[in-house]
């Protein structure tokens, strides 16, 4: 029946035998799991179509998450206690961070100030140390320090290592200003530096007086610089009518300078002095207010002597 060239029967029988046993089980499995229907269910189909609707899609992808986030936040923050707890938590966190030793300032160093000024600065700065560097308002501190008269510029910074460094440039007093009630030191720009009790405290500085003298300090310094040979005789400068300067020399001599170009006028009188030895004579004032007509006023004795020498008889008077 079976041709010889056919594959051996053994294979077939084995196949049959092996298939015979699990056959019922397989049949059951087939009955239990029918072939899956490739068709989408009605609901899945509708959902897919709905999902392809552009409006619905954007609503679900943008609108819904936005709504959930806003709603959740609104619900959570609707309660005042929770809000307070949240802000309290954040402030605590912030404070904890600020109070870390890395940010603490424990030392104040003041450079470039005299001890008395340093004390004054410490008093004005009023920074209780140690303090967190976040709590120190450096700009306000600098402004406060700058209100001190003796301070020209203040440079405030927090250095590493918790040091608050204040670098001060002091105002250098250039003149002494005599006011009706006090003596003040002024710097070259006319800013007040300090009070002095007596003129003798600062004999090295020139003395100024008169109304508005403080405003014209640079001019006064120019005049003093130009007054080279007169300096040993110089007693001070007086501002007249807030307009022009008088140079007061010893022996109550005065040089009345014009409101404009006082230095030039001074140089002129110096030249005259050098040539004629003018100021050594018995002269009360040299009036240079009118440039084209300088006027000398002689002392009374000198005047009398001059008149006598000229043969002019006068009534005895102070004129």
């Amino acid at each position: 029946m079976q041709p010889l060239i056919a594959p051996p029967r053994l294979v077939a029988t084995r196949a049959v035998a092996s298939k015979a046993a699990p056959a019922p089980a397989r049949a059951e499995a087939k009955a239990e799991a029918p072939r899956r229907d490739p068709a989408p269910s009605r609901a899945a189909y509708r959902w897919h179509r709905l999902w392809l609707t552009p409006l619905f899609r954007t609503l679900m992808r943008v609108g819904l998450p936005a709504f959930v986030i806003v709603m959740g936040l609104g619900l959570y923050l609707g309660n005042a206690d929770r809000r307070a707890a949240l802000t309290g938590h954040f402030t605590d966190l912030r404070a904890a961070l600020e109070q870390r030793p890395e940010f603490m300032v424990s030392l104040m160093s003041i450079d470039g100030a005299t001890p008395a000024l340093a004390d004054a600065i410490r008093k004005v700065a009023a920074v209780p140390l140690p303090k967190s560097s976040f709590d120190i308002d450096l700009l306000a501190l600098r402004d406060r320090i700058a209100t001190l008269d003796a301070v020209a510029t203040a440079d405030v910074r927090v250095k590493s290592g918790g040091v608050l460094q204040i670098r001060i440039t002091e105002r250098v007093p250039a003149v002494v200003l005599r006011k009706p009630d006090a003596l003040e030191l002024l710097d070259a720009s006319g800013h007040r530096v300090a009070l002095v009790l007596a003129r003798a405290d600062r004999p090295d500085l020139p003395l100024l007086a008169g109304d508005g003298a403080a405003k014209a300090v640079p001019e006064a310094l120019q005049i003093i610089a130009a007054a080279g040979p007169l300096v040993p005789r110089l007693r001070g400068l007086v501002r007249m009518g807030d307009r022009r300067w008088d140079i007061v020399l010893d022996r109550d001599q005065r040089i009345l300078l014009p409101a404009t170009d006082p230095v030039k006028a001074l140089e002129r009188i110096l030249a005259l002095d050098k040539a004629e030895n003018l100021l050594a004579r018995d002269i009360l004032t040299v009036d240079l207010r009118l440039q084209e007509r300088p006027v000398l006023r002689l002392a009374p004795n000198a005047l009398r002597e001059m008149r006598r020498a000229n043969g002019i008889e006068t009534v005895e008077s102070s004129l």
Binding site: A39, P40, H48, R49, L52
Partner: peptide, 10 residues
């Protein structure tokens, strides 16, 4: 079957 085809095409 129509649903399957339409959904796949969509």
């Amino acid at each position: 079957a129509i649903r399957t085809a339409v959904q796949a095409a969509q």
